[in-house]
């Protein structure tokens, strides 16, 4: 049963290059390069500095924006989740801004911020910020009241209660928010790089489009996908390490 499922799943993965090959070989999608052409273009890109600089630049932008987003959203979310006054002061304003897709801010931030770099980072930051914030708030609110009470009756002060009870209690939710946030950070980064121009994988892909170099577009798409998958895996790994207690370990 299990092995049959694995076979079906493998088939699902293999279907992508097969369909791609068929579609490009028989010209079903005009202009779609074949897998072999893309592989050639990929090898060529690996020898170009520009490709590596773009890759490193995009990675740094995502990581930096993500770390800043988490560093702001987690403490803010914990406070909003636990203190009514804090929630009333900040949450309505944040809730009003949240439905605006971060990408909509791109033209404005390019005009207002002194460097394109900053507006790209800001858009990426927004992508990660809201999912982490909302999940943290929910996580902090979900910590049952007896846990902080128990801590206080054991002598913990407010800070210690936050540090040792509310934060770890909210961690599973924070982690869920980080997984979503990492995905959206990439989405927004690529969009921002395409518009703001200059450097990065988004820009590389977009300029391949403007120069009509079809295989390079696909190279960009595949690289973005790979990096997205790697970052998600890293966040997941971090989470598994931090919240191992949610799963009983075999003794």
């Amino acid at each position: 049963m299990e092995s049959r499922r694995r076979l079906v799943r493998l088939g699902s993965i293999l279907a992508v290059p097969v369909l791609w090959f068929v579609a490009s070989r028989f010209g079903l999608i005009a202009g779609l390069p074949t897998p072999v052409e893309v592989a050639d273009a990929y090898v060529a890109e690996l020898y170009r500095d520009d490709f590596w600089i773009s890759t490193i630049q995009s990675t740094i932008r995502v990581l930096a924006s993500f770390v800043v987003a988490a560093a702001v959203a987690v403490p803010l979310g914990l406070l909003i989740g636990r203190y009514t006054i804090f929630a009333d002061l900040t949450f309505p304003a944040l809730e009003m801004l949240r439905p605006i897709p971060p990408i909509a801010w791109i033209p404005f931030t390019i005009l207002v911020l002194p460097a394109a770099e900053l507006s790209i980072m800001f858009i990426t930051f927004l992508g990660a910020f809201f999912p982490i914030l909302l999940n943290t708030v929910q996580g902090a609110r979900g910590v049952e009241v007896e846990y902080p009470r128990a801590a206080q009756s054991l002598g913990a002060n407010s800070y210690q209660t936050f540090r040792h009870v509310i934060f770890p209690g909210a961690l599973p939710a924070i982690h869920a928010g980080m997984i979503v946030g990492m995905g959206l950070a990439w989405v927004n980064l690529i969009a921002a790089e395409m518009v703001a121009g200059g450097t990065g994988l988004g820009f590389l892909t977009w300029s391949a489009y403007t120069s009509g170099s079809y295989p390079t577009i696909i190279v960009g798409v595949i690289t973005i996908g790979l990096l997205g998958a790697i970052s998600s895996a890293l966040v997941r790994l971090l989470g598994d390490w931090q919240i191992g207690w949610t799963e009983p370990r075999p003794n």
Binding site: E144, E146, Y147, R149, A150, A151, S153, L154, H164, V165, P168, G169, L171, I243, W245, T246
Partner: peptide, 13 residues
Amino acid sequence: GVVFQENRLFPWK
């Protein structure tokens, strides 16, 4: 000190 009706050991410790 308090012992609660449902167990309230900190699950993360």
